[in-house]
């Protein structure tokens, strides 16, 4: 397939170029704030991309996807506290544990559909949230500080902001590539078919449950890996990472960017997190012009602006930002 030179691909190429050059900007200006912010964005974009695999392509509305961010993070945190600092141990364990938990949760929750599926994935995620609160040895409610990032010998130094950023960026690109291969393979056709018309899939001879389960496990595993990255990024892991509102954020990123669109979750993650950073500043600036004394306070109400914005996208841009770009291009 030849990629047509269109608005949409130019936009995505632009985003990727900016992401790739960000460390250069940081090095030139000496301002590392943006690089830190975007490290977080890139990691969460990876998590959102993994959610998109089940939500956008598979129609499985998991409301507990952040649980894997927590699992991956806690594996790194717990192993670090117990003195196992090698990333060659930490990360494979994080991946394996995430996969196992996704297998268990998927096997139980994929037997339900619709609202029940949403509720059961939410309930399981909250269960892990409370389990984490109960881990007294590992900080309980307060969370666990990670004093040393995962060690990879001479291969890569995670304490270097630039190296860590590029590592996360490579993982994001790898995830997007993997999802791209998956959703266009035979396996992916089964997943899409099951979202489109599960009953018919059974009628033509697909036992869809096992395909959806494997898909659920792949998504959970990728998100677990993102969790390991996130814990290294924040040097900290706490139950809050798994709270249901974090799962909600991931859904917002996917829906905002475009469900079932390859780069949608990345666009959504950038949009949501950049808005989160800039809206409070913008609002207090505007409020400051009107009523200087209320300026700082007004900034706290940025969610009141973000909510309707999100609603507009859902109502008027069915395919999210990516769908909007495609529509503009078609004219």
């Amino acid at each position: 397939m030849t990629a047509p030179l269109n608005l949409r691909s130019i936009f995505i190429a632009g985003v990727l170029t900016v992401l790739a050059l960000l460390p250069v900007y940081a090095a030139l200006t000496g301002n590392y704030f943006l690089l830190t912010l975007f490290t977080r964005i890139v990691i969460l974009a990876m998590a959102a991309t993994s959610l998109n695999l089940i939500l956008g392509y598979g129609g499985m509305v998991s409301f507990g996807h952040a649980v894997y961010l927590g699992i991956g993070g806690y594996v790194v945190g717990i192993l670090a506290k117990e003195g196992i600092l090698s990333g060659f141990v930490q990360w494979p364990v994080a991946v394996a544990v995430s996969a196992l938990i996704a297998l268990g949760l998927g096997a139980l929750s994929l037997r339900t559909r619709g609202v029940y599926f949403i509720m059961i994935t939410l309930a399981f995620a909250q269960m892990f949230y409370y389990i984490a609160i109960g881990l007294d040895r590992y900080g309980g409610d307060d969370g666990l500080t990670i004093y040393k990032r995962s060690q990879f010998g001479d291969l890569v130094n995670l304490s270097s902001k630039t190296q860590f950023y590029y590592l996360c960026f490579a993982f994001l690109l790898g995830t997007i590539y993997l999802v791209w291969r998956l959703v266009n393979s035979r396996f992916g056709m089964v997943i899409r078919g099951s979202r489109s018309n599960d009953r018919r899939m059974h009628a033509i001879g697909f036992p869809t449950f096992r395909y959806k389960l494997i898909c659920f496990v792949i998504a959970g595993t990728l998100c677990g890996l993102a969790g390991a990255l996130l814990a290294n990024h924040t040097d900290f892991i706490s139950p809050a990472v798994m709270h249901w509102t974090r799962s909600g954020d991931l859904i917002v990123m996917v829906v905002l960017g475009g469900m079932g669109s390859l780069f949608g979750p990345l666009i959504g993650a950038v949009a949501l997190l950049v808005l989160e950073e800039t809206l409070p500043v913008l609002i207090s600036a505007v409020a400051g012009l009107i009523l200087p004394s209320a300026a700082t306070q007004a900034g706290e109400y940025w969610q009141i602006v973000l909510g309707p914005l999100f609603l507009l996208v859902v109502l008027f841009a069915r395919g999210g930002i990516d769908g909007l770009l495609a529509k503009v291009q078609r004219g």
Partner: peptide, 28 residues
């Protein structure tokens, strides 16, 4: 499968009879 092309619809039906679909890489 209303959101897929006519050919995709029938291809899925062919695929249903072509053994398991745990093939993750090649473009179907």
């Amino acid at each position: 499968f209303l959101d897929m092309s006519a050919l995709d619809n029938v291809s899925l039906a062919v695929q249903a009879h072509a053994g398991h679909s745990f093939r993750f890489w090649r473009d179907a």
